[in-house]
Design a protein around this nucleic acid. Structure first.
Lengths: 342, 342
DNA sequence: CTGAAAGCGCTTACAG
DNA sequence: CTGAAAGCGCTTACAG
């Protein structure tokens, strides 16, 4: 498939430039070159200058593979993202990227579960031991075997987590947040409140579901199974579908709590297509507070998650683990932001 | 910063498992192990079985660095993305990921220009020669020095490109697409048509701008500098700002052509906040046809770009280059999709 | 079909 | 402060 190409940068003459080329040009050993480029040991001023001149003249850069091989680290981190299309994930990844690159790490991105190898159930990048650690926004369920297979690889979860507490994570309190959202709806006088849920292989989805039920229970409102629709994902279209089903009920809800803004937006779209006014005929509260939430019309009443901070916090957790620490999981604050949709 | 960790997967006893461990366990040489795991040379059935058993028993996976070092390729591709928040980019990256991983490549993602090293003006991943090639969705302008520095590294552009034609790219005809959009507005009777442009370090932004002017010229409508607002990026908020400025004109436009859907959505938001109806008071056409375009209210009239296909095509271009080919640039089809906003 | 050995480009004790 | 050499974990001629 791929053309054989020397790894080193090629000056116009086509010859790979490696550490030995620099050493030769500077008239020193490769060990010395290594010491100056890494500032790992004292080198005389004179020698250092000669080496630096040679490096500059040749345009030398250390080969990442050789370096990783000897150092035992790649400074590459895997980020597992379920869905590039949901702005929640892009915002979060921005947070990860921001802290990680300040520490000299690069990000290898993989979509999960799409990128999971059929045989191993893990991303190729994992089993090739390419990365120093992983930050997962994906459902950890299917990844358990992979995680167990490589006990020395540090994992950290973001927004999502594993319930046994074995993996540090940065997250909000999903259950409480959902409870807050539904409580708000109840306070506004709603009693027929639907849940627009998402793939429950995610614990956040299960916890938000539980929060919804808790709020209802607390208010003495009986659960109605017809009022809960669990979507397979968070695409707008899935929100539309679920909303359509809700509308088809003999006794439709007067409010819906959607566990994601994208789902909420899809639902609103469907309601309006069906001639319902939001929030007058039916109120909708979302979850995440993606940038679009305040731009969409009607602007979304939603639970704000600190997306960027969640990513940044997860990244810091991983960095701490990489440094040999045993950081504790973090619960960040959420907030109900009331706008127009409910 | 980081804890020293052996590269190999560790069985519970903590000893790194490398190719020699497999060789020992199977009673063969490491060369033979290499041959069976890569299926690179014939190996007797008996030997193969013993090796495979050892691999399975030990849970052995080849070390990516050692492999890359000897093979001269990493099967890692760099994708340069300007803005994770714009769905246009996420959709496109999906297309890239889809073809690339089918060929055994992983993606290293970097935000440009954010991730550019201050000194070199290129992503660290580039100068460490970590990747086999790069697909750039970013503005190539600031990257020129980096590109020239490593003539052996294959680059491919997506949506964006360099005008001298030196780099294969997959793109639509931005000028024609913009012309189509503005022509549509003119056909609908508009004569005061504003341009909501984006950062013109991108050639797509300049070409869409040119298409706008061409359409006006062709219709004998004089250009009015007050009617063109060039935003720094494509955030919703920038669209809102620009729209506000347009509204402040003594003689505001009756229509606006926005070079991105996110900009268009921001503009619509601002118009409605100011009490204008879209499209009745002011028509808006966008660009990209992101998933949101049909969900937003009013649904966007926009130029559809084949986002996923653009990414997939760019990926194929790069794969061809990696295979030693010299692929020609591709121009994919765009289409005006008329919905509610104009 | 199989193995011993060189080599990929680095880093890092070990001597001096 | 500096160098010779071993070693990281692979792949691949070269012999047999």
């Amino acid at each position: 498939m791929s053309e054989k190409r020397p790894l080193a940068a090629l000056p116009s003459n086509g010859k790979a430039i490696s550490i030995s080329a620099v050493a030769e040009q500077a008239g020193v050993s490769i060990a010395t070159v290594s010491r100056v480029i890494n500032a790992s040991k004292p080198v005389s001023a004179d020698t250092r200058e000669r080496v630096e001149a040679a490096v500059a003249a040749l345009g030398y850069r250390a080969n990442a593979f050789a370096r990783s091989l000897t150092r035992g680290e790649s400074r590459l981190l895997l980020v597992l993202v379920p869905d590039f299309a949901n702005p929640f994930y892009s915002e979060t990844v921005k947070g990860v990227a921001s802290v990680v690159r300040r520490h000299g790490y690069n990000i290898v991105l993989a979509g999960a579960p799409d990128a999971l190898a059929p045989d191993t159930g893990a991303p190729d990048a994992l089993y090739s031991r390419l990365v120093d650690g992983v930050i997962s926004l994906a459902s950890l369920h299917d990844l358990q075997p992979a995680i167990r297979d490589m006990p020395d690889l540090p994992w950290v979860a973001c927004s999502e987590f594993v319930e046994d507490g074995g993996m540090p994570h940065a997250s909000i309190d999903h259950g409480q947040a959902a409870l807050d959202a539904v409580q708000y709806l109840i306070n506004r006088g709603h009693r027929r409140i639907a849940l627009l849920g998402a793939d429950e292989s995610y614990v956040w989805a299960r916890q938000r579901h539980a929060g919804y039920e808790a709020a209802l229970k607390r208010a003495g409102i009986p659960l109605d199974a017809q009022l809960v629709r669990v979507a397979r994902g968070t695409d707008y279209s899935l929100g539309m579908e679920a909303a359509g089903a809700l509308l088809a009920l003999e006794s439709p809800p007067t409010a819906v709590f959607a566990v994601s803004d994208t789902l909420a937006i899809g639902a609103i779209k469907a309601f309006r297509r069906a001639g319902r006014r939001v929030p007058d005929d039916i109120a909708v509260v979302g979850f995440d507070n993606i940038p679009l939430a305040q731009v969409f019309e009607p602007a979304l009443t939603t639970i704000a998650q600190p997306m960027f901070e969640l990513g940044a916090a997860a990244a810091r957790l991983l960095l701490e683990r990489l440094a040999g620490g045993h950081p504790r999981s973090l619960t960040l604050q959420h907030a109900l932001v009331v706008r127009e949709s409910a």
